[in-house]
């Protein structure tokens, strides 16, 4: 059975949950911009955001009294947030062809263009 959050920790738990998503997105955002622009400073910011994410996860784990299986969930979550932006970036680079490789919005169907909005 789960051990519910203590009354005094309800707000801290909720804020920590929200911050996990916010810092997760900030880490991903700064990571992606750093890769895009090749700026080391942005990558430092990304890792700073990840550090704050880890702190938020720790606060959530403490306030929600997470033990045993639940601690492994938080560990998986931390690892997942760390690697997800890298995997997605590699996926983006792998799935986006170089310029001019294909036509924007081109339909595989030769009978296409029965009325796209912009035509």
């Amino acid at each position: 059975m789960i051990d519910p959050v203590a009354v005094n920790d309800i707000m801290a738990a909720a804020i920590a949950g929200a911050l996990i998503i916010m810092f997760g997105a900030t880490y991903a955002l700064l990571f992606a911009f750093s890769r895009l622009r090749g700026q080391r400073l942005l990558m430092i910011g990304a890792y700073l955001a990840y550090g704050l994410l880890a702190v938020s996860v720790a606060v959530l784990a403490r306030t929600l009294n997470l033990e045993g299986f639940w601690q492994s969930v938080t560990a998986v979550m931390l690892v997942g947030y760390f690697v997800a932006p890298r995997l997605i970036w590699n996926l983006c680079a792998g799935t986006h062809p170089p310029h001019g490789d294909d036509n924007p919005g081109t339909h595989p169907n030769p009978h296409s263009a029965s009325g796209g909005t912009m035509q």
Binding site: G24, L29, C92
Partner: peptide, 20 residues
Amino acid sequence: ALEPIPLVAMVVHAVYDSGV
């Protein structure tokens, strides 16, 4: 806990597309 992962993916992809 896994449900936010697509949202993180969305952020990275949006930045990639806006820059490239």
